[in-house]
Design a protein around this nucleic acid. Structure first.
Lengths: 226, 226
DNA sequence: GTCTATAACCGGATAGAC
DNA sequence: GTCTATCCGGTTATAGAC
């Protein structure tokens, strides 16, 4: 279990540093593993339904070890939540990469859909927390998210002024995109049930993606007709 | 607290019947009140986070009374869920009233949006349950919901054949409508935060409704160009 | 039917050995 | 750092007085 350190190392100082780094890395690995399974367990049972014992069991540890890495269940949950927010903001940068509504919206929708595919549990934890309306996320809603939305509104309104988009309320358009993409994570159970109890294949998922892209683009974008 | 019964009643039998009905009604009222506040509390805290004590307090009763009306927390929760499903199926009949995609989709979206406006808590409880992916709703997903979706697919595909709609996967279109409309219930906290911490006014909500209707219609409906 | 008091249980957190 | 044993608060459910 202890890190394997070569006995051939000439410099003791170097060996010591090696061990230090290794321990830090191991701690990091422990945290990462716990965060990963915690996201799963919180998504499956909600904050109150999830138990530290189960998180431990999924990580192959007794629950006392969880408390060694994270002082409390609440703190662990907040870390999971923060990681989801970071991920979300990362994906939302896709919006900025083009000065053309069709390209920007397509890239953004695809990025959000990929997140729903790869991190459905993160999306569920987030959805849950928002539905509860608790104070844990109020700060984020009123600062980073608010700012991001306002900056996107400026862009969308500019596209509308230029005649590249039909006049549409930017916020309600964003809500439609968030809802349509996150649905594939938050409601995956329902989608599976309606797909003969099989998860969507990659092909089906791509079809779902382009369905959303097409509807949104045809719904709001004005194309030049030369 | 006991029902007021007129002393002028001539027939004892009638009086007795009156009392019987009245008691039944009172029991019904008790159940309805509890179901109403239970939906609220379950929506706010989730199944495990909600406590029978709080449900009782919100209904002005000690928790033992809740157990008098509903044998367990689990049973009460299931009743709340069933009521939400019934409501959902009721609204979904709006889809059937027209043999024209634009009219049908508009009516359906409006009905779903009205539900999000009037019963956001029901929507949250449902969303939560689906996200958990538990067995409580599996039967419904695999029977009534599946059948409803399949029958709608037939209609949508017919509209496509007739050239009234662009070729689009019916299921993915339905998911987009569900997601976009339910979002206004499930994510109301987020929407409020992004609206200067004020709930959407009736005017704003109508604007959101027509935003969804317009995007979906322009996204999928083909209009005759005479 | 309604309410108080209590039983039985469970989960988060910690003490302390290793 | 890791794990076992334990404490303590809170929750469901019920017994039993009124």
């Amino acid at each position: 279990m202890t890190p394997v350190v070569s006995h051939h190392l000439t410099y003791l100082a170097r060996e010591k540093q090696q061990i230090t780094i290794s321990n830090a890395q191991r701690r990091q690995q422990g945290e990462d593993l716990i965060l990963k399974v915690a996201e799963e367990v919180f998504a499956k049972h909600g904050f109150h339904g999830a138990t530290v014992t189960e998180i431990g069991k999924c990580a192959g540890l007794p629950k006392a070890n969880i408390h060694y890495y994270f002082s409390s269940k609440e703190k662990l949950y907040q870390r999971v939540l923060e990681d989801v927010i970071d991920l979300w903001l990362e994906a939302s940068q896709q919006f900025e990469d083009f000065d053309d509504p069709a390209k920007s919206l397509t890239a953004y929708i695809n990025a959000k859909m990929d997140l729903s595919r790869t991190r459905p549990n993160g999306s569920k934890v987030w959805a849950n927390e928002v539905a509860r309306g608790g104070s844990r996320i109020q700060t984020h809603l009123n600062t980073r998210l608010k700012q991001w939305v306002e900056s996107r509104e400026v862009w969308i309104n500019r596209w509308i002024e230029r005649g590249q988009m039909r006049p549409v309320n930017a916020k309600y358009l964003l809500y439609m995109i968030w809802a349509s993409t996150q649905h594939y994570a938050d409601f995956d159970t329902q989608i599976i049930a309606l797909n003969n109890n099989k998860p969507l294949s990659d092909e089906q998922f791509e079809e779902a993606k382009s369905c959303i892209v097409e509807v949104i683009l045809k719904g709001v974008v004005i194309y030049d007709n030369p």
